[in-house]
């Protein structure tokens, strides 16, 4: 499984992309997408909602499972990918394109706590996959 090296990750299988305007874009990883299977529904947060780090903010639902997506860092939701509400299958097709929401972090330094691709790969191995 290839893990894009330009992104950051969490142990709970979110990917994080730092944008030039200081916001971050968040989605779920290929691994998470495979575990869940065919996606049928996505519930996105309201724009303007403030999130704590590791707060549950998105529900992704497949035929056989439903999972929470956690905010990688504290911040305010500035955009959501509402296209996914009608086409949740885009997450299966390309999880690294099908972003879920964009966040304005409260504290840019928090991003340092995220894993890089290598760290995420290790985390996956220790999960036994």
């Amino acid at each position: 499984m290839s893990i894009p090296t330009q992104l950051k990750y969490t142990k709970s299988h979110e990917w994080v992309k730092s944008e030039s305007d200081g916001t971050i874009t968040v989605g779920i990883t290929q691994h998470a997408q495979e575990l869940l299977g065919d996606m049928v529904f996505v519930e996105l947060p309201k724009i303007g909602r403030t999130l704590a780090q590791k707060e549950e903010c998105v529900v992704v639902e497949s035929v056989k499972a439903a999972a929470d997506v956690y905010s990688p860092v504290a911040g305010e939701v500035v955009a959501v990918n509402s296209e996914l509400e009608s086409s949740p299958e885009k997450i299966n097709q390309d999880p690294y394109q099908a972003w879920l929401f964009k966040l304005k972090p409260d504290n840019a330094a928090d991003l340092a706590s995220l894993l890089d691709a290598q760290g995420y790969e290790k985390a996956l191995e220790s999960e036994g996959h």
Binding site: K64, A65, D68
Partner: peptide
Amino acid sequence: LQAREQHIRRSK
């Protein structure tokens, strides 16, 4: 819509 149900979602 089984993912809402207890046998999958358990405590949620």
